[in-house]
Design a protein around this nucleic acid. Sequence first.
DNA 1: ATGCTATGTAGCATTAATGCAACATCTAGG
DNA 2: CCTAGATGTTGCATTAATGCTACATAGCAT
Lengths: 81, 81
Amino acid sequence: MLLTMSRNPEEPVYNRIEEARAALGLSRQDLADKTGVHYQTIGYLEREEYSPSLVLAIRIAKSLNQEVSELFSLTPFKKGK
Amino acid sequence: MLLTMSRNPEEPVYNRIEEARAALGLSRQDLADKTGVHYQTIGYLEREEYSPSLVLAIRIAKSLNQEVSELFSLTPFKKGK
DNA sequence: ATGCTATGTAGCATTAATGCAACATCTAGG
DNA sequence: CCTAGATGTTGCATTAATGCTACATAGCAT
């Protein structure tokens, strides 16, 4: 089909993907490859322009050796790990 | 828009929603109300006709006093709790 | 039997998540 | 300076997730 203007849903999910990814020295492309998604998708998630599906969240957590609950939250994360 | 025939995605997520819900003596309608979704949505999830968004998974886990990882998995659950 | 509750099934509308492509920008190296 | 890599931005197509409505069925009451 055509149209729609997604980007920026009403229900954001906070995440620490960028920190966790940087801690492992991975580029977005690297993480995208490990996870099996487009590298832009990682970017959108890090910028919190939309929230992932549960499957994607689980796969990303696995790629980063983290628990889903450590990486994603409905409430903002505190600064620092 | 129109059309589409969702139901039954390519990537299922296994879950224990039904068991956890029953353990608390809640009907689907009860859980749907607590979670803020349509009661049919709970049914689709229990029958694994599609997998939830991350936000919904988190909210459901919270409604059932469970961890996301205890309730959802990319691999099938063993029988019994 | 009648009725009520829980559940399954089917369709359709709307919106979000994802892929992908084409750019722009910025920075680190050579 | 030039180039390459990483990241941000915009647009559009496709598909999944969700809401909602309606109806069927099965069980359990009264």
